[in-house]
Amino acid sequence: MSLEANLNACLEIDGALAVALVDTASGMALATAGNPRGIDLNVAAAGNTNVMKAKEKTMKDLGLKDKIEDVLITLTSQYHLIRPLTDASGKGLFIYLVLDKEKANLAMARFKLASIEKAVSV
């Protein structure tokens, strides 16, 4: 499945507003899709790169050998999900998904995003 098809699959998740594929090294959005309702996905990509780097540093400082499955940020009207790619070709990349909190089922969104992420190959 193409990158565009994977991003479109993310947008089919109930409540999905926007999605971006982000490079952790540069903080740049490599691809985006959707209507983020006033959120600049390029700024969000850079900011969420800082979130990922901070979490990775904290895990290293704590001596944790686990890997991040996803990061959830809950706002009053939205969920923001960050999911690192696990395929070797996607090392250093993550999917950033914005969901409308009223329309999304968080458990199902996490399940579907995990499935889509496994299919992403860059």
Score class of each variant (00 low, 15 high):
1 M>S: 15
6 N>C: 07
25 A>L: 09
107 A>M: 09
23 D>T: 05
59 M>N: 15
57 K>S: 15
115 S>P: 11
15 G>H: 04
92 G>V: 12
43 V>N: 12
49 T>M: 02
80 H>R: 10
94 F>P: 04
65 K>S: 13
84 P>W: 00
109 A>Q: 00
15 G>N: 03
78 Q>E: 10
43 V>E: 13
87 D>Q: 09
5 A>V: 12
64 L>H: 05
106 L>P: 06
109 A>C: 02
61 D>E: 15
47 G>K: 09
5 A>N: 06
83 R>E: 10
83 R>A: 12
21 L>N: 03
56 E>P: 09
20 A>K: 11
109 A>S: 04
11 L>Q: 14
100 D>G: 03
21 L>Q: 01
60 K>I: 15
57 K>N: 08
3 L>P: 00
54 A>M: 11
51 V>K: 01
30 L>T: 02
70 D>R: 01
60 K>M: 15
34 G>F: 04
47 G>P: 08
10 C>W: 03
21 L>G: 01
39 I>T: 09
47 G>T: 12
80 H>M: 12
12 E>G: 07
69 E>K: 15
25 A>C: 07
82 I>G: 00
6 N>E: 07
31 A>N: 04
59 M>H: 13
6 N>H: 05
39 I>L: 09
120 V>Y: 03
82 I>H: 00
105 N>A: 06
87 D>Y: 02
37 R>Q: 11
23 D>R: 14
93 L>I: 05
96 Y>S: 15
93 L>S: 02
4 E>Y: 15
31 A>R: 09
81 L>D: 00
39 I>Y: 10
52 M>T: 08
36 P>R: 13
44 A>M: 07
14 D>P: 10
12 E>W: 09
101 K>I: 01
83 R>K: 13
108 M>D: 11
28 M>K: 13
42 N>V: 14
91 K>C: 11
103 K>H: 04
58 T>V: 14
86 T>D: 13
31 A>L: 04
1 M>C: 13
75 L>I: 05
98 V>D: 05
57 K>Q: 14
26 S>I: 06
14 D>R: 08
69 E>R: 10
45 A>W: 02
99 L>F: 01
96 Y>P: 05
66 D>N: 13
75 L>P: 03
93 L>C: 15
112 K>Q: 12
93 L>M: 15
12 E>M: 15
49 T>F: 00
119 A>E: 14
21 L>E: 01
122 V>D: 10
5 A>T: 11
53 K>I: 04
119 A>R: 10
24 T>M: 12
16 A>V: 02
89 S>M: 14
107 A>S: 09
76 T>Y: 11
34 G>C: 06
28 M>L: 11
35 N>P: 15
31 A>H: 05
115 S>F: 07
91 K>I: 10
12 E>D: 13
120 V>R: 03
55 K>V: 05
48 N>S: 13
121 S>K: 08
89 S>C: 10
101 K>T: 00
